[in-house]
Design a protein around this nucleic acid. Structure first.
Lengths: 220, 220
DNA sequence: TAGATTGTTAATCGATTAACAATC
DNA sequence: TAGATTGTTAATCGATTAACAATC
């Protein structure tokens, strides 16, 4: 079944694509034209078979004895992820985490540009943070509509998360990158991706405990 | 095979434990003594079977018709994750992300306390951020040894990541929570857990693209 | 050509889901 | 007791790993 240009891919594969992208960009800077699955696998501590299977979804074919063309692969991965064309996003909640994300310059590599931030605190409204202007959160809906913003970054306190998400969605946001610990209830036309520090720390804590108990686990 | 107190558990299960913890704490505040797998599942949009299987690794048994005892379950999950006793951690790299983590009060719920921060910038050394003192990074090794710190939080720029990790490990750190995009090379006695924003954004981007192409995906 | 590397098809492994007996 | 909910055993599903033919 053909679904337009978007082929369905496994989540683990999609999570690895940015890792390849980073390695490939390093190789590109070093002037390498080709990268073998073995070389990429070694750098990322993966199996070469995983690399070949993952890269297959980009449609780029490698050549035996040489590997995969670096430039073409970078373009194909970015295209696949929709990172070729910059996506404009709004950030809601300029606390310490919100500020940190506004200051993160790496997002441009992922085709993401935070064009405005919003907060309820009058002291913050009208100021700038890392070059991004902070607006009154009450202006967010009209600005989302007017600028056709599709992606929202949610960095408000937990108790304001669901309400802010509702506002975003009502105004037409299609995806929310959720940095709060709240499980948002949203219509299934809206995509939610949560960054869960607690889950990450849980895995670390458990692996530390397992190590201490003398049972070395494989890297997760 | 008994491996001390630590039972081996699936990574997906471990990642879900903090979610249960959060829901259970809410229920505890509401005065609920018992929680059924169905109730927890509904709140977290999971299958009740998943909940029961996950909770089984804590050793807490539920009672038919009532569910699981909330208080006991909270304690058991925290114990399982090693969050009952506070873990002292050092943070290395007080950029915008480092500052954000220093300001995050939620960590105490996860048994984590950042007791000192380190940076190479003389302007930052000697100051405090969110109540945590910032020291010269050159003092980090001796302080790790003296205070028997086991956990390091890495928020330095990418090009300083491997070197800072080496320093931490040489001084006796056993686990690193890695917020840089660098794949660290470490001895396998050291546990690394990476928080990868790019992977998270990749999944979001891909799901948005899939939605746009008219093929709704199940939540990941 | 010989040999290394790709891409694909099959086998394994592990997590999720289903079915159902046990029990309060 | 009847009925709801647990816990376990089996079935399904999907990702990883292995095997190997194709090809430069």
């Amino acid at each position: 079944m053909t679904l337009g240009q978007t082929r369905t891919a496994a989540i683990p594969t999609i999570k690895r694509l940015p890792l390849y992208l980073r390695s490939l960009r390093d190789l590109q800077v070093q002037g390498e034209a080709f990268a073998s699955s073995a070389a990429l696998a070694k750098e990322l501590m993966l199996d070469p078979i995983v690399v070949r299977k993952d890269l297959a979804i980009t449609g780029v074919v490698g050549t035996p004895r040489r590997g995969f063309p670096v430039d073409a692969l970078i373009l194909a991965i970015m295209e696949f992820l929709g990172w070729s064309n910059t996506t404009d996003a709004f950030l809601c909640g300029v606390g310490s985490l919100g500020r940190a994300l506004l200051g993160y310059e790496g997002f441009q590599l992922y085709g993401l540009r935070i064009v405005a931030a919003f907060d309820a605190n009058p002291d913050k409204i009208g100021t700038k943070e890392h070059g991004v202007k902070i607006f009154d959160v009450r202006k967010m809906p009209t600005m989302i509509e007017r600028m056709h913003i599709q992606l929202g970054i949610l960095t408000v306190p937990a108790d304001a998360a669901q309400s802010a998400a509702n506002t975003m969605i009502a105004a037409g946001i299609r995806g929310i990158w959720n940095f709060t610990p709240v499980k948002l209830e949203v219509p299934d036309t809206v995509v939610i991706q949560r960054v869960d520090l607690a889950s990450s720390l849980a895995v670390l804590s458990h692996r530390l405990a397992a190590q201490a108990a003398g049972c070395p686990l494989s890297p997760g």
